[in-house]
Design a protein around this nucleic acid. Structure first.
Lengths: 232, 232
DNA sequence: CACTGTGTTAAGAAAGTCTTAAGATTTTCA
DNA sequence: TGAAAATCTTAAGACTTTCTTAACACAGTG
């Protein structure tokens, strides 16, 4: 399950560095030092993500981003110099999905790339690579297409977040999923801190709707100090 | 029984310091301040372990790690700057066996080196290098995914720390594991002092749950002056 | 017997979880 | 568009489980 990633930066050292790190993660990398070649690549290759520097010799990242958005939906990450703060707003409104300011830690960028790919394949892909869009076991039915859920033939009215959480738990049934993992899976790229009890509150709501209790859970079990799990 | 250890760090002071400590332990040390010489060394020397800084003038630790993994199986320890927290995950998935964050206590690093060498020489014979998440032997079953544990088909309800301790003992079955080693494995890189009897208390709880006794232990045996072990 | 390492116990500290509710945000729909 | 509804996030306190500490008892060692 690899992905095709485009990197465009006229600073060759940076483009090369990013290339090394991405290849380390087994991504296919298309690397260009100018906009013209990049645009060509966008037309001819089936890309999964693009990393664009804003300043380029022959054009700029925004133009490329706009070009991409005309025909494609894959995520775009912008590279901006530190003092180009304004780019944040502009870049994002122009359709970039994330931005990273220079200088950056290569691994930070890699993490962002992964986050975007995860987000993209989860939400935007009509034909999922691996994941099914129907989970059915032990009286629980989850339909990702319709976002419907039934428990023992009784329909549950779940909010989007609740559905996502239950989906992740169900997809990993039998395995303990930590709050942090749940958070990352459901919310995507944001950072997690222990003081954030959002997941917990949603679990509480889920249990309520499933007529489940925290003390003697039938469905979502708490594994102390580790996370939550649904039995197989 | 000495070992050949490669250390690569462009911060000469650090590389030199590590060298001193490793030589003090009678290891043969190959020290380099850049990636090129290190790669050369990897080709020509029969190494037992490598310590790699991530940031290098001409390349990076991951590239070297990948090179090593193409041909060799010996353990690799990564050095990461404190703020490169994310490296932990990425570095490990890239094939490093352990990571140490800068700044570090030299003796801490030495301890890690020893641990890796021990692990390697042990596993290298029959067992796979990659850690499993299921240990099953002599009536004891430990499942890291579900955090479940059964002893002779009877489920044991273990706390996270108890589970970790039993896991380490089980993973090292047949070998004595000292309290200090247990502490480091379970609690991470924190410092250990002899006056700390936390491990002992947990062992006591474990024995209780396993219906084991200190005088005539069936499972967790005390090796006087050394540590604890579980028979194979 | 002194000494050092290990075992036991219990209580207080710390960490993790649950619940609740208010306020912020987003979505819906007239 | 603006008001209402739904949903999400945050925060605080109660509650539970787990961990650590410390004091003392016990067991090996020389």
């Amino acid at each position: 399950m690899t992905a095709n990633i485009l990197i465009v930066d006229d600073e060759q050292a940076i483009a090369d560095l990013v290339e090394v790190y991405l290849k380390n993660e087994n991504y296919n990398v298309f690397k260009f030092y100018n906009g013209k070649d990049a645009l060509n690549c966008i037309e001819n290759e089936k890309l999964d993500l693009a990393i664009l520097d804003i300043m380029l010799p022959d054009t700029d990242g925004f133009s490329i981003c706009r070009k991409i958005r005309e025909r494609h939906k894959f995520p775009v990450i912008m590279l901006t110099a530190k003092d180009e703060e304004i780019d944040k707003i502009t870049g994002l409104t122009l359709g970039a999905d994330d931005y990273v300011t220079k200088p950056f830690q290569p691994l930070e960028l890699v993490a962002r790339v992964k986050a975007q790919l995860r987000r993209f394949t989860r939400y935007n892909s009509s034909e999922p690579l691996r994941e099914e869009n129907l989970i059915e076991f032990a009286g629980l039915v989850l339909n990702k297409d319709t976002h419907e859920c039934t428990l023992n033939e009784r329909p549950l009215s779940l909010t989007p977040t609740e559905f996502s959480i239950l989906w992740v738990l169900a997809a990993n049934r039998g395995r303990v999923v930590s709050s942090e993992e749940l958070f990352r899976e459901v919310w995507g790229e944001k950072y997690y801190s222990n003081s954030n009890n959002t997941v917990m509150v949603h679990i509480r709501h889920l249990r309520e709707k499933m007529h489940d209790s925290a003390e003697h859970p039938k469905y979502i079990k708490t594994v102390w100090g580790v996370g939550y799990k649904i039995e197989k």
